[in-house]
């Protein structure tokens, strides 16, 4: 049984059709990288998976069950899915440590001391143990994003969603975030990653899904996809992206 599957998912914003007939299954432990031109619906698809956006057609199954629509069940499902945003979205009024303990304490009911101990472990793991007592805006972009990854991991999720985690970063900070994500991928975490980092896709992905105009045009292992894309759209896209 796949961990997540999208079956015939469609979505519109008003008259703007953003997703059409999306079919995608992700197995436990798999790393799927989603790439595609701007506006092709990558973020929207990613956000549908933890129901930050609702869908108009089809269905999404998580651990074999349709996504709950609301209430306690939805919250419980979201607690099992970590999400990392392009703009970090660390809670601006809380220290880094308090960012990491908020979920475990209020949602999972962990003891504060226990949550803090685990939070410090995770900060150590992403290389910012010394920032625990600082506020988000005192950190660099790369440090903030690593803290945001640690915040998601503090919930012990079974799936991690990344929506262009490095797009808001200065070039010299991109690799420090990608390194953390690579380590996470090789530790066996199930990940869905929307990114423009082709190097990451090539080295860390089990599969690449290529989106254009709200559809998944092509899905293939990275070696196959990058060396011999089957669709015209993908060839065209790769030609433009890889030229630099």
């Amino acid at each position: 049984m796949p961990l997540v599957s999208l079956e015939g998912v469609g979505k519109s914003f008003g008259a703007n059709r953003v997703l059409s007939d999306i079919n995608l299954s992700v197995e436990s432990g798999e790393v799927v990288v989603v790439i595609g031109p701007s506006g092709s619906g990558k973020s929207t698809m990613c956000r549908c998976i933890n129901r930050l956006e609702t869908i108009d057609e089809g269905r999404i199954l998580f651990e074999g069950r349709p996504l709950p629509a609301e209430g306690r069940e939805l919250a419980r499902m979201r607690a099992r899915v970590g999400m990392v945003f392009q703009s970090f979205n660390l809670f601006a009024h809380r220290t880094i440590l308090d960012n990491l303990t908020l979920g475990p304490v209020t949602v999972l009911g962990r003891k504060r001391s226990q949550a803090e101990e685990r939070a410090r472990e995770l900060l150590e793991r992403v290389g910012i143990a010394d920032k625990a007592d600082q506020l988000p805006r005192q950190l660099s972009g790369g440090q903030q994003q690593r803290a945001a990854i640690a915040r998601a991991l503090a919930m012990d999720p079974v799936l991690m969603l990344f929506d262009e985690p490095t797009s808001a970063l200065d070039p010299e900070m991109i690799s420090e975030v990608l390194d953390v994500m690579r380590a996470l991928a090789s530790s066996g975490m199930t990940m869905i990653v929307v990114t423009h980092e082709m190097g990451f896709a090539r080295s860390a992905a089990d599969r690449v899904a290529f989106m254009a105009d709200g559809r998944i045009v092509e899905t293939a292992p990275p070696a196959t996809f990058f060396d011999a894309p089957t669709s015209e759209r993908a060839r065209d896209f790769l030609g433009r992206v890889l030229r630099h």
Binding site: A75, R78, A79, N89, F91, R151
Partner: peptide, 8 residues
């Protein structure tokens, strides 16, 4: 959104 995504 970040708070909702944590399950709050």
């Amino acid at each position: 959104e970040a708070a909702a995504a944590l399950g709050l």
